[in-house]
Nucleic acid binder design. Structure first.
Lengths: 149, 149
DNA sequence: ATATTTTAGTCTTATATGCCCGTAAAAGCA
DNA sequence: TGCTTTTACGGGCATATAAGACTAAAATAT
């Protein structure tokens, strides 16, 4: 059966997914405690829009390494709660321009303390250099151009 | 505003989530091409059950670094398709014993080629040593005991 | 200028993830 | 023994993720 190899132990996908779940629970918990009312991904999207300015959905999807449909779904609760604004682009009526609202910016500030607590907790346990090393490695992974797709 | 720091660039959670999405797309695509009819997480659960034998949901949740409710949700499609069996434990009627069926084992074999293609593609681009290093780092992350929760 | 192709986003469907609450059973305690 | 607490799951809810089909609009080709 050649089933001696322990796939779970060497599968890069399984490993990173497990680690991602663990980290996300930490950040989501801290963000929830801060009272920002946003999850990790939402916090990331809002922060990106605040820093980089309005972006189309495609641009957001690329910047977040996310499917365009996923961005659309993720934006819906944010739009419903008034944290982002979505408008038809004037220069290309197919595109939608997404921008963070004042309320969205407020939420970022509220959530920042929670994010910092999670970030501090994580790096305190793993070590700053190890964390930096991990982020660099993640950047490399994100940059890989797979032959499929 | 102290908004000069680029949260997206230093947030460990955002980075690992982005990388996870990228990797998962590769593995899911290859698994789909193999015709196994299972996704990355399902493949991991089936493989774990095949290798380690029947497990309770709690055990599965711990081994997968997953919420126990999540395991329950993830098992539903597998049970529906006859890839796993879920029975009440005789020694503890609260617990459910999950085991992989013959059909489930068959799916693993079918999917193995897809998994290997993804694994080869990933490690070919990132490098075997880098991949090993990444998995070790993920193991460290998984092992962290956060003070919250 | 018209026809074709490509691109941006939506809608549907399905899995993935985890919280909270409730139920039932086991474990611990008085 | 009987009461309380803990534990294992299920149900409901909400967000997260992406493939596939579809629509509309822009870009390109003829």
């Amino acid at each position: 059966m050649a089933n001696d190899i322990n796939i779970a132990a060497i599968c890069n996908c399984t490993k990173i997914r497990r680690a991602q779940r663990h980290i996300t629970r930490l950040y989501d918990t801290c963000l929830a405690e801060s009272g920002a009312g946003v999850r990790a991904t939402q916090f990331a999207i809002l922060g990106l829009l605040k820093r980089e300015g309005p972006k189309t959905m495609m641009e957001l999807a690329n910047m977040m390494t996310m499917d365009r449909a996923t961005i659309g779904h993720n934006l819906r609760p944010l739009e419903r709660d008034g944290l982002v604004r979505i408008e038809v682009s004037q220069s290309d009526r197919r595109a939608r321009i997404v921008s963070v609202t004042d309320e969205g910016k407020k939420r970022i500030e509220i959530g920042r303390s929670g994010w910092e607590r999670a970030q501090t907790e994580f790096e305190g346990l793993l070590g700053h250099e190890q964390a930096q090393s991990m982020r660099n490695m993640m950047d490399e992974v994100i940059g890989l151009s797979f032959s499929i797709n």
